[in-house]
Computed example of a mutant assay.
Amino acid sequence: MTALPNQTAILTALQHLIEVVAKLRSPDGGCPWDLAQTRETLIPYVIEEAYEVVDAIRSGDHDAIAEELGDLLLQVVLQAQVASDQGQFDLSRVAEKITEKLIRRHPHVFTDLAVENIDEIHRNWEQIKAAEKGQDFSETQRLTYQLKRAARSLPPLMAALKISQKAAIAGFEWETIEDVWAKFEEELAEFQHALAHESKAAQQAELGDLFFTLINLARWHDLDPSVAVQGTNERFIQRLAQIEAVVDRPLSDYSLEELEAFWQQAKAKLAKERATNPEH
């Protein structure tokens, strides 16, 4: 395997990071916060940093991408250090296991196996993965297995969209978009009824059904619900920032009518800016 020109610098930088994290976790002069962390308490940071990497990639800012990848790498090193402190495994085992997995799952690269297309590569990958886990390949191809994997490994909105897509391919699909809208109206009515007459658990269940139907509507119109919600979040924050830039008192000091007027002004201003410069 050909070494990268700066491989030594990369390994040196990684070693320095490992040493810094080990020092932070050291009972002898380490950081109390780092020492108090467990694998479970670090979970929110793993998720947060992964999302920040995605946000940086979408921004196209190379410096931000490098910084956020570093934050995510820190979470990997921290998890490995916590495990090492407990005598379970260390970062070398983490690296070895993923390297072995990559080689094992790419026989068309690391052996003489010939493949004709990407579909064959994917099928080989799934067969090897099933064998690794001691599973029957035919079982892993069942719809329920694939849906459970999506629900377990993806954020809820992304999982719901993937579940909807796979179910539709398998035949669980409405005939027309009007049928989907009718289902949405049905679920909306059931949610409203639950809010008025049923338990909190029933309300949660009906809210979930309503969301899932809305995600199906998005799929029918080739829309990504995760991207849609992210855009709404960003627009809300942008409008709020416009309001905070012009008010001279805490927002809580204003009436709802005043806040609504500020909101509409901010909305109009941002819309005008986007029309003038659509790339931003």
Rank of each mutant, 00 (worst) to 15 (best):
K97R: 02
K97P: 00
T99D: 12
K101C: 00
L102D: 13
R104G: 02
R105L: 12
P107E: 07
L113Q: 14
L113Y: 01
L113K: 14
V115Q: 05
N117L: 01
D119G: 14
E120K: 00
I121D: 09
H122M: 13
W125M: 09
W125V: 09
E126S: 09
E126P: 04
E126G: 03
I128H: 02
K129I: 04
A131V: 02
E132D: 15
Q135L: 15
D136A: 13
F137I: 06
S138D: 13
E139P: 01
E139W: 12
T140R: 13
Q141C: 10
Q141F: 00
Y145I: 02
L147I: 15
K148C: 12
R149N: 11
R149Y: 03
A150F: 07
A151M: 08
A151G: 07
R152H: 09
S153M: 08
P155V: 05
P156W: 07
P156L: 07
L157P: 03
M158G: 00
A160P: 02
K162A: 12
K162G: 03
S164Y: 00
S164L: 02
Q165E: 14
K166V: 12
K166A: 13
A168M: 05
A168L: 06
I169H: 14
F172L: 14
F172H: 12
F172M: 11
E173T: 09
W174P: 14
W174S: 14
E175M: 11
E175Y: 00
